[in-house]
């Protein structure tokens, strides 16, 4: 009796793992395809029926990094995205603390106003933003992208951090107050360390959004002194060579892999953060 129960439990576990393995394969197939695409010659990317086991070559990788300004795209993406996240954190942490902890008139309205900036259709503000940066002489400059990304993501960064700060028990902050800390000290020494998961989550989200941003990047940057990977990717779809699929795969992987690794490293923070954000009012 006990033996048959053990066998049934064992087979049910095997069944579960098989199902999960199928699901994982289904989810990862596009990534695998992207990797194989980046490792095949250009002719092998366009044959019909497709070749599932190609002749591996680093031709696309060489072509992308030697004949295209990949290093410039990478540098611009890094500067603009990381810079925008730093600006966001600098502004969002005190804003989130204020929204989470202080009582003042219009607090909820201000909170909603911050969030509402995320609801604007980007195309509606594209032209004003273009003119604004033109007047600031910042066109085709990564600093302009940094500022735009920061502005786009500020609301979500603020709200994610706020949702974590609300969770910090008030008594702990009161204990710090009794111990002699003032508001800034409480924020830096108590609330912020206890909301670090929220800060990490918000930073990753902002980073992903910044790296993915296309519309404003295309609008503001027109040479490789400001173009990022997302716009760079589009460069491989036109021109005299037509669509260069294996090069596109290389650029896509270069964009995707660092974010993927980063997300894996902090996935515990991230999943908790997204869940919390979903359940908060």
């Amino acid at each position: 009796m006990a033996k048959s129960r053990r066998v049934s439990q064992h087979s049910s576990r095997i069944g579960r793992y098989l199902l999960l393995a199928c699901w994982a394969f289904f989810c990862l197939l596009p990534i695998v395809w992207l990797v194989t695409l980046s490792l095949r010659g250009r002719t092998e990317t366009m044959v019909n029926p497709p070749i599932y086991w190609p002749h591996f070559t680093l031709e696309a990788w060489r072509d992308t990094f030697e004949n295209w300004p990949m290093w410039a795209y990478l540098r611009n993406t890094f500067v603009a995205a990381i810079g925008s996240v730093l600006i966001d954190l600098l502004l969002a942490i005190p804003a989130a603390y204020s929204l989470a902890r202080f009582q003042y008139r219009g607090r909820d309205q201000i909170g909603f106003y911050i969030l509402s900036t995320r609801m604007i259709v980007p195309a509606a503000v594209a032209l004003p933003i273009y003119i604004l940066f033109k007047n600031l002489h910042l066109l085709d400059n990564p600093v302009a992208l940094m500022l735009i990304y920061a502005a786009i993501n500020l609301s979500i960064v603020t709200w994610v951090i706020r949702s974590y700060m609300i969770e910090v028990p008030r008594e702990i902050e009161e204990a710090a107050r009794v111990d002699g800390a003032r508001s800034i000290g409480i924020l830096l020494r108590v609330t912020l360390p206890l909301s670090i998961s929220g800060v990490v989550t918000a930073s990753i989200l902002a980073l992903i959004f910044a790296v993915n941003e296309f519309l404003f990047t295309l609008l503001i940057s027109y040479t490789d002194s400001a173009q990022t990977l997302s716009v760079g990717l589009a460069m491989f779809t036109g021109g005299s060579k037509g669509i260069i699929y294996n090069d596109i795969a290389v650029v896509a992987l270069v964009t995707f892999v660092p974010m993927f690794i980063l997300t894996l490293l902090i996935q515990r923070h991230l999943s908790r953060g997204l869940t919390m954000g979903a359940l908060k009012n």
């Binding site: 028990p169 008594e171 702990i172 009161e174 204990a175 710090a176 107050r177 009794v178 002699g180 800390a181 003032r182 108590v190 360390p193 206890l194």
Partner: peptide, 19 residues
């Protein structure tokens, strides 16, 4: 202000700094 009163307080939940 609280910070300048020479008091110490023990809270119901202890309110220790967890980090």
């Amino acid at each position: 202000p609280v910070q300048d009163r020479e008091i110490a307080m023990v809270f119901q939940s202890y309110a220790l700094y967890p980090h």
